[in-house]
C-alpha cells in the first residue's frame, strides 16, 4: 500500500477514535494495576499478620479500580460512535483527546493506591476508623472524575455517539 494511503487511513475518524479508546484503557488500566499492586501488597501484609483485617483491606484495595472503569466507559462510547458509522476526522480527533483526558488523569490510580495502602495500614492499627479512611482514599479519584467529565463532554459536544 502506498505511503499516502496508509497516512490517510491512519488519520481517518475510525482509526483515530480507536487510538483514543486504546490510549484511554491502556493508561488507566496500567495505572489501576499499579495502584492495586501497592494497596494489595499492604493488604497481604496486614491480613497475613491478623486475619480480621481481611474484609476492610479488601474494600480499600479495590478503590483504585475506578479509573479503569471510567476509561472503559469512554472507550465504549467511542466505539459506539465508530459503529454508528459517521466518524469524521474531526470526531476522530475529539475522541482521541477525550481518550487522552480520561487516560492521563487515570494515572491518579497509582496515587490512589498509595493512599489506599496507607489507609489499610491505619485501619490495621485502629479498626474503629476503617470506615472513615475511605474518605481519604476517595480524594485522589477527583482528578480522574474531572477527566471523565471532560472526556464525556468532549464526546457529547462533538456528537461522537
Amino acid at each position: 500500500m502506498a505511503f499516502e494511503e496508509v497516512l490517510i487511513t491512519f488519520f481517518s475518524g475510525n482509526v483515530l477514535g480507536a487510538i483514543g479508546a486504546a490510549v484511554a484503557i491502556a493508561l488507566a488500566g496500567l495505572s489501576s494495576a499499579k495502584g492495586l499492586e501497592i494497596a494489595g501488597n499492604t493488604a497481604a501484609g496486614a491480613t497475613g499478620e491478623k486475619e480480621e483485617n481481611f474484609s476492610s483491606a479488601l474494600i480499600l484495595q479495590a478503590m483504585p479500580q475506578t479509573q479503569v472503569i471510567y476509561a472503559f466507559i469512554i472507550g465504549i462510547l467511542i466505539i459506539l460512535g465508530i459503529m454508528a458509522g459517521n466518524m469524521t476526522i474531526e470526531k476522530g480527533f475529539l475522541s482521541l483527546f477525550a481518550g487522552l483526558a480520561v487516560g492521563i488523569t487515570g494515572v491518579s490510580a497509582v496515587n490512589q493506591g498509595k493512599v489506599a495502602s496507607a489507609s489499610i495500614g491505619a485501619a490495621a492499627k485502629n479498626s474503629s476508623i476503617k470506615g472513615k479512611v475511605l474518605i481519604f482514599v476517595v480524594m485522589p479519584e477527583i482528578a480522574a472524575l474531572f477527566g471523565f467529565v471532560v472526556a464525556i463532554m468532549v464526546l457529547i459536544a462533538g456528537s461522537v455517539f
Binding site: 499492604t42 497481604a44 491480613t47 497475613g48 483485617n53 483491606a57 495502602s117 495500614g121 490495621a124
Partner: peptide, 19 residues
Amino acid sequence: KDSAYAYAYGVVSSMTGKL
C-alpha cells in the same frame, strides 16, 4: 520505592494494632 515497602508497611501496621 513506595510499592516496595507496601508489604512491610502492612505487616508492621498489623503488628502495631496488636501492641
